[in-house]
């Protein structure tokens, strides 16, 4: 295997791992960072997104629209939950944990009763397009025919050539777009200003005429919509079950907390960069097993060294240097 193939593979894994963490955690980081709610039903909101995407696509709606609808649907579901229940639990980390755990039990069970334990999975988009790297090929983007030409009769890759699907890169691109969009929304719009004001000091914001309940509802809806979109994206590459989301919640939560609450988006990005990096490096140096365990261990160590998460630590450093 030549150096270029290795570097490309390394980059691909890094982006793949980062995309996974960003998508799983973005919605949660907004809800946790801005409202102080530990949303254990986050995975279930992703699951709702996955189901909406699935039903839309069974009905012939193309994937991008289906995923957007998933975001809308999950956003609405989130706002309903917020109005009915979550609004009683702002800044109460643990009560919110119990309530949302209860909600997650209810939501997944309702889906099980309504739709059964399994849904037909969806085809992965762009699965015909592949990137070939290394060996006699060098670097090539090929379709089904090109791929068949390279693999020949045996259906086997020539020595030294590695192939990559591109959907994972699409996921990364969408994840980056989502982060940028959320950042712009929070930094450059009036809603963002109000939301940040509400987060910093709800009483003051209220006194200044900001309708804090409405801001909270929208923020929760936004976080839920992001979860729904992420669920839709993941639905295209995994089995869709009522327990689809459970696997994401804990890891998303760890990512968010490692990021810290000092900066919702910066913290998340830093956390994803660090955890994804550790996973990729260790996987390549040792094994996928060590990479995975190493990522969790890294979360452990980061929390010990930076007791308020990465963003808190960075803020502290900045404060010190001033």
């Amino acid at each position: 295997m030549d150096a270029f193939t290795q570097i490309f593979g390394f980059a691909f894994q890094y982006l793949d791992s980062a995309a996974y963490l960003i998508l799983a955690a973005l919605g949660l980081s907004i809800i946790f960072g801005m409202m102080g709610v530990i949303n254990m039903a986050h995975g279930e909101l992703m699951m709702i997104g996955a189901y909406i995407t699935a039903f839309c696509m069974y009905g012939g709606i193309p994937a991008p629209i289906a995923i957007l609808l998933a975001g809308v649907g999950a956003g609405i579901a989130g706002m309903i939950l917020e109005r009915l229940i979550i609004r009683h639990f702002y800044k109460q980390l643990l009560s919110s944990l119990v309530v949302t755990w209860g909600l997650s039990m209810i939501i997944s069970q309702v889906f099980l009763i309504m739709f059964g334990p399994n849904m037909p999975s969806l085809p992965t988009p762009f699965s015909d397009i592949k990137i070939l790297v290394g060996g006699e090929v060098g670097f090539a983007l090929v379709g089904a025919e090109g791929f068949a030409r390279v693999t020949g009769e045996t259906g086997r890759m020539p020595p030294g050539v590695e192939s990559f699907g591109i959907y994972r890169l699409v996921m990364f691109a969408v994840a980056v777009l989502m982060v940028v969009a959320v950042w712009l929304l929070l930094r450059k719009t009036e809603f963002g200003a109000r939301a940040r004001a509400t987060m910093d000091n709800p009483t003051m914001a209220n006194a200044l005429g900001i309708s804090t309940p409405r801001i909270y509802a929208y923020t929760f809806g936004l976080g839920s919509a992001l979860a729904g979109i992420a669920g839709g994206l993941f639905a295209l590459t995994s089995a869709i079950t009522p327990y689809f989301g459970a696997a994401y919640t804990a890891r998303a939560f760890i990512t968010v907390v490692v990021g810290g609450a000092a900066g919702v988006i910066n913290g998340l990005v830093a956390s994803v960069a660090a955890l994804g990096g550790v996973q990729t490096i260790l996987s390549n140096l040792f094994s996928v097993y060590i990479g995975f365990v190493g990522m969790i261990a890294a979360a452990f160590l980061i929390l010990l060294v930076m007791p308020t998460g990465i963003s808190g630590y960075m803020e502290k450093l900045r404060g010190r240097s001033r």
């Binding site: 229940i85 009560s95 309530v99 755990w101 209860g102 039990m105 209810i106 069970q109």
Partner: peptide
């Protein structure tokens, strides 16, 4: 599971 989830939510409310 459904009832148990409901109990948790109701209890905290």
């Amino acid at each position: 599971t459904l009832v148990m989830g409901g109990i948790l939510v109701a209890a905290m409310l």
